[in-house]
């Protein structure tokens, strides 16, 4: 599925069954991001499909 990581402005193609598995594969700490599918916020337990468009947004802004 297509993954967009906002912090690093990267797009990746990665296979994963859940958001949790996806973040583990990307080595992203789940406390530092929120994840959206088709512009809707989803939890780590959510199952994801090959056709989903996933965005990973960093929660850290600073100042």
């Amino acid at each position: 599925m297509k993954i967009y990581i906002e912090k690093t402005n990267e797009s990746k193609n990665i296979k994963a069954k859940t958001v949790k598995e996806l973040l583990e594969k990307l080595k992203i700490n789940s406390t530092t991001v929120i994840v959206t599918r088709n512009n809707e916020l989803i939890t780590e337990e959510e199952k994801i499909k090959e056709t989903d468009k996933i965005r990973i947004l960093s929660v850290i802004s600073g100042g």
Binding site: E6, K7, I34, T36, N39, L41, L57, S58, V59, I60, S61, G62, G63
Partner: peptide, 13 residues
């Protein structure tokens, strides 16, 4: 902030 539609991009300093 995301759910309220305040912003959709969160920049880091």
């Amino acid at each position: 902030s995301f759910l309220m539609g305040f912003m959709d991009k969160f920049n880091e300093c």
